[in-house]
Design a protein around this nucleic acid. Structure first.
Length: 427
RNA sequence: GGAGAGAUGGCCGAGUUGGUUGAAGGCGCUCGACUCGAAAUCGAGUAGGCAGUGAUAAGCUGUCUCCAGGGUUCGAAUCCCUGUCUCUCCGCCA
């Protein structure tokens, strides 16, 4: 959510940002409503002042045993007017809030202006895609042939976009989770959180999923609960409606969670394999930082996520998302894309964003620079560190052998009981 | 799921026959005095939102906020209704 005062005094900047994002929001209607609200507010506050003053006087008169009927009658009318005006103001405020909640964040100046993912800017590449001297198989074939992933029974038991991990596959998924959590907690200074996988609507509003993207979420029937689409939601909302001290910042959290996404609008895309599931595992990095250095923190967060791929030996590239591809709440986002041989391309495996004060304002997460200073909004950041299912897919594809076996990266072997290779006979 | 109790400022905790209570008192914190320094002691100050004014400052003014929402009333932390959460007992359960 943008600062209403900022929108009021910088309408041109906001309009330009919306244009760059190809978003259509009527800002003029918003500005008119805002002005109307303030006018009415001044009027009603004058009446309220009168009511307060006279009511106190009535109290005094009654105590002294003097008549106050006339004033009571007068105030009865005043109160009626106040009530009506309050309702009008509330209606305007609801409209304003509704609009404000659907205005996306303003992109940072370092974000390239562009229409879609083709205008994203490649920042760097790491590692070289391996040259195969045999026909590479997609990860779902490898997984099925090794009998470590079962897509078919996933469809039977749950539905499309669900799967079972089995044997060494299940263990590999778990190894990746533990490896990532250990790396980030031991080497990168993050404190581990194990969050609820179900949250309320306020939390979804806090991080920006609601009200605009309700159809992407799984909502539990007969309740106001939602399955989380990412651990970002519960972890960022940890400090909702709190005022932190400057000494507490920066706060680094990492969290494993299952993630649930309805994938509305993605019908027909990535229907095979682990790339786009309704439920997947992810280790998420979340930061709460001082606004002064949030962009340095973004670079560090990005490096923390990259480190996972480097240690696994998976080739990747980093892209700076353009204005047209940027997520709703983000001011700047780097995507990390891992090399997938069967796709012959890089595919997103992590998304690292600085939300500046956009989420903090929605969720009301503040801090004080000094003991007695005015509270300010913190900056929030988060990034996948990494999407586990896609990482597993990348391992299967990049480290496959001609005989259908898959080599396990050395850093994961301790988590796999020393296993160096998954083959049909040791699954 | 059944029965009961409760939710007040950073924390603890008064206030429930409605009327200088945005809120006593204590703790904590900040500044000052005392001290070589510290502790103790003493003094002062210590919520947030919105709006007006002002320089999109400080300050000043108004208004709102005692879990949330609604109601009664000239006036509500105090009365009524609904919801949320917490605690205790019973039942059930990983």
């Amino acid at each position: 959510m943008l600062d209403i005062k900022f929108v009021r005094s910088n309408p041109e900047i906001v309009k330009q940002a919306l244009t760059n994002r190809s978003v259509d929001v009527s800002l003029d209607q918003f500005l008119n409503l805002d002005e109307e609200r303030r006018k009415k507010l001044v009027a009603v506050e004058q009446l309220k002042n009168k009511r307060n003053v006279v009511s106190e006087e009535i109290g005094r008169l009654k105590k002294a045993g003097e008549p106050a009927e006339e004033k009571i009658l007068e105030m009865r009318n005043v109160s009626q007017s106040i009530k009506q005006m309050d309702e009008e103001i509330k209606e305007i405020e609801n409209k304003l809030q509704q609009i404000l909640l659907t205005i996306p964040n303003i992109p940072h100046q370092s974000v390239p202006v562009g229409a879609d993912e083709n205008d994203n800017e490649e920042v760097r590449r790491w590692g070289k895609p391996r040259k195969f001297d045999f026909e590479v198989k997609p990860h779902w074939e490898i997984g099925e042939q090794l009998d470590i992933i079962d897509f078919e029974r996933g469809g039977k038991v749950s539905g499309a976009r669900f799967s079972f991990y089995k044997g060494a596959g299940a263990r590999l998924e778990r190894a990746l989770i533990n490896f990532m959590l250990d790396l980030h907690t031991r080497e990168h200074g993050y404190t581990e959180i194990m969050p609820p996988f179900i949250v309320n609507a306020d939390s979804m509003i806090g991080t920006g999923q609601l009200p605009k993207f309700a159809e992407d979420m799984f909502k539990l029937e007969n309740s106001s609960y939602y399955l989380i689409p990412t651990a970002e939601v519960p972890v960022t909302n940890l400090y909702r409606e709190e005022i932190l001290t400057a000494e507490q910042l920066p706060i680094y959290h990492c969290a494993y969670s299952a993630c649930f996404r309805a994938e509305a609008g993605a019908a027909g895309r990535d229907t095979r394999g682990l790339i786009r599931q309704h439920q997947f595992n992810k280790v998420e990095l979340v930061k709460f930082v001082n606004p002064d250095n949030s962009y340095e923190e973004l670079e560090k967060l990005l490096q923390n996520a990259e480190q996972v791929l480097q240690l696994l030996g998976l080739p990747y590239r980093v892209v700076n998302l353009c204005t047209g591809d940027l997520g709703f709440s983000a001011a700047k986002t780097y995507d990390i894309e891992v090399w997938l041989p069967s796709f012959n391309t890089y595919r997103e495996i992590s998304s690292c964003s600085n939300f500046e004060d956009f989420q903090a304002r929605r969720a009301n997460i503040r801090f004080r620079r000094e003991k007695k200073a005015k509270p300010e909004f913190v900056h929030t950041l988060n990034g996948s560190g990494l999407a586990v299912g896609r990482t597993l897919a990348a391992i299967l594809e990049n480290f496959q052998e001609q005989d259908g076996s898959v080599c396990i990266p050395p850093v994961l072997q301790p988590y796999m009981g020393g296993l160096t290779k998954i083959s049909a006979d040791n699954k």
